[in-house]
Design a protein around this nucleic acid. Structure first.
Length: 648
RNA sequence: GCCGCUGUAGCUCAGUGGUAGAGCGCACCCUUGGUAAGGGUGAGGCCGAGAGUUCAAUUCUCUCCAGCGGCACCA
């Protein structure tokens, strides 16, 4: 039998018999490495220690120190161990799939009884026992018929289905954790004892549809987190707790920004503080888009169904629309209207007034458009997903030749605006033509190329979602992440070849003939509500001065200082600062604490010393100390600092 | 919409088959205190809505509504 050459990461080459396993090589290199080995990377592919190596290869022994790979293995084995634990406790439960996810893993089970919190504790305990057994993990590749027969025999219908779905030519890999068996792509650890017994935790149970399809059975998904050691788990739990403190729903209440209530689910009651923030954001966006050549418009809320029939929404979107009817007994004529779920058809109506020339294009019509959508009850989430919201919407009517330039300038505008709001990181998704679509392939080719090349001129950091475009055109989505790592689509840029034609939009071209313009739907914040929700979490409520609803509190230390406090407040207010007085009969400690909790960026304390000198004692949110400065100086500094980024 | 959990004072939460309690907040009084909670007194609840079981329901059961965690959806 001939030997094969194994190249190690340090470049050293070793010669072994064909069929040697990574585990054996690790043990050969050193006894301790053999023990520490979790898996191997054969030619950069993560594999089991037990996998025979049959040709020359580069080899890396993966140990707990290789964070990404180790976590992947630990979490994957955790999922299997959890499934084994569940089936050991409840043998009738059917197993399905259990992948690794960010920070942990889940496994979907089919069980009639719901899993309770106590059940989770029992499963965790059983998992600890399985880990302590240090059961060997072994694997075999089976042929399809044998695997299907096996799962039919053992009463695992979901596994039968999964085996059937594995493409021809791919190995059907069977794994055993001790006696417990699962179908899995692998790789896995060498034995269950390699999972750290004190570094995982089961977090929650949730419903999830089999294969992600709401027509299928709902399974029970158990989520867990897992790390390399106890400390990492503790750190993660701590991080989670900190993130929960930034929840915009919690801060919204604490900072008196907004509230939601039962009588209007998914509709926001903005309070004075929150509305101040909202207006600050809106005013800023308005200045930016005006500077970028948009014209602002305003269109109706309640629109006759005829327009929605013409636009296609009546047929395709009706279940999400609020239908408005006038009481028949009192109305002279009965009309059925809908609250607009989006602004596009209304914008086309404005475009259609008067004959347009190619010289008018690109025409950029913008609206802070109030939209209502009847979102499903389970999908609503604080400000992030609501039923009544305002889009910073705009539609650019242009020629096909203008798409590329408009796309590029939009991306630049968006990234500049996101930066001003403190968002340096966001995901860009490029969605291409779906199977069912309108428009010719040539037009799609051109539009996709225009969008993608425009993105590439700005950044290479984007993902492609093949087939995820709208039926009317390709799109770019810009996603921001909330405190708990959930992604929310905010910005969007969509080319539309359908609606302008449907609603009869035209322009007279250079050739004197009528043409249909392309319509570019675009939004930067997506919805002001959602954007502000993320903004709150991103800043943890500690807004920069220009956005802070309450910018300055001037607090008296003794009541004899009250008149000067009022003078300071008036001076600051005269420059446009949002300043308020706190001359309550409370100690300065109390006032400082209360306004710190309220996340007021600047507290100015005034005692008799300050009155005598014409100064204030300035304390910044989060700072320990304070600084005594003159009224003139503090006014100058704060006024400067409170300017919006585009006005600096 | 689906699965699970939750709904008690403005907020955070205890609690019980015999119509309720804490802390914070709020009001009033005392206190004028130098940078994250001074003290006292007091007010405040249709125990999410409806129905059922029961002598009696905030408590048990059912239905509905809303919220939370997911899933699905997200022009």
């Amino acid at each position: 039998m001939s030997d094969i050459s194994i190249t190690l990461p340090d470049g050293a080459k070793r010669s072994y018999a064909v069929g040697i396993t990574g585990g054996a090589i690790a043990g050969d290199i050193s006894k301790s490495l053999g023990k520490a080995a979790l898996a191997v990377k054969i030619d950069d592919r993560l594999a089991d220690l037990s996998e025979p190596i049959t040709s020359d290869a580069s080899l890396q022994i993966v140990t707990i120190k290789d964070e990404a790979d180790a976590l992947e293995l630990i979490r994957h084995d955790c999922a299997h161990i959890m499934a084994r634990a569940v089936q050991e406790i409840w043998p009738d439960v059917k197993v399905t799939i259990g992948p690794v996810i960010e920070n942990g893993f889940y496994y979907d089970f089919d069980r009639d009884e719901p899993f309770s919190t106590e059940d989770l504790a029992a499963i965790e305990k059983k998992m600890g026992e399985i880990i302590n057994l240090r059961d060997t993990v072994r694997t075999e590749v089976w042929d399809r018929d044998r695997a299907i027969a096996f799962y039919e025999e053992s009463g695992e219908p979901y596994k039968v289905e999964l085996v059937g779905m594995i493409p021809e030519g791919e190995p059907i890999r069977m794994y055993w954790h001790g006696e417990w068996q699962d179908l899995c792509r692998g790789p896995h650890l060498a034995h269950t004892g390699q999972v750290p017994a004190d570094a995982f935790k089961l977090m929650s149970v949730a419903g999830a549809y089999w294969r992600g399809d709401s027509d299928n059975t709902m399974l029970q998904r158990i989520y867990g987190v897992a790390f390399r050691n106890r400390q990492e788990l503790k750190d993660y739990i701590h991080l989670l707790e900190e993130a929960q403190k930034r929840d915009h729903r919690k801060l919204g209440r604490e900072m008196e920004l907004f509230h939601l209530q039962e009588e209007a689910p998914g509709m926001v009651f903005w309070h004075p503080n929150g509305w101040t923030l909202y207006r600050e954001v809106e005013d800023y966006i308005r200045r930016r888009i005006t500077a970028a050549g948009y014209r602002e418009i305003k269109t109706p809320q309640v629109v006759d169904r005829k327009l929605w029939e013409a636009s296609g929404h009546w047929d395709n979107y009706q279940e999400n629309m609020f239908i408005v009817e006038v009481d028949e007994d009192h109305a002279r004529e009965k009309r059925i209207n809908a609250l607009k779920p989006m602004n596009c058809p209304c914008h086309v109506q404005i475009y259609n007034q008067g004959l347009k020339s190619y010289r008018d294009l690109p025409l950029r019509l913008a609206e802070f458009g109030s939209c209502h959508r009847y979102e499903s009850s389970g999908s609503m989430h604080g400000l992030m997903r609501v039923r009544g919201f305002v889009q910073d919407d705009a539609h650019i009517f242009c020629t096909e030749d203008q798409i590329a330039a408009e796309t590029e300038s939009f991306i630049k505008l968006l990234s500049s605006i996101y930066k001003d709001f403190g968002f340096e990181n966001y995901d860009i998704k490029f969605s291409t033509r779906p199977k069912v679509r309108a428009g010719s392939d040539e037009v799609w080719d051109q539009a996709e190329a225009a969008l993608e090349s425009a993105v590439q001129r700005v950044t290479n950091d984007y993902e492609i979602d093949p087939g995820e475009g709208a039926f009317y055109g390709p799109k770019l989505d810009f996603k921001l992440t909330d405190a708990l790592g959930r992604e929310w689509q905010c910005g969007t840029f969509q080319a539309d070849f359908v609606l302008p034609k449907r609603l009869g939009a035209e322009y007279i071209g250079e050739d004197g003939a009528k043409h249909t313009p392309v319509m570019l739907h675009r939004a930067i914040t997506g919805s002001l509500e959602r954007f502000i929700g993320i903004l709150i979490e991103n800043y943890a409520g500690k807004f920069p001065l220009w956005l802070a609803p309450r910018q300055v509190v001037v607090a008296s230390i003794v009541s004899d200082a009250d008149p000067f406090v009022m003078k300071v407040v008036e001076t600051l207010q005269a420059t446009g600062l949002r300043a308020e007085a706190d001359i309550r009969n409370e100690k300065i400690n109390y006032k400082v604490r209360e306004h710190s909790v309220g996340k007021v960026p600047v507290i100015l304390a005034v005692g008799m010393k300050e009155v005598a000198d014409g100064t204030v004692s300035m304390r910044r949110l989060g700072d320990k100390g304070s600084e005594v400065i003159t009224l003139e100086e503090v006014t100058r500094r704060l006024t400067l600092e409170a300017r919006a980024p585009d006005l600096v």
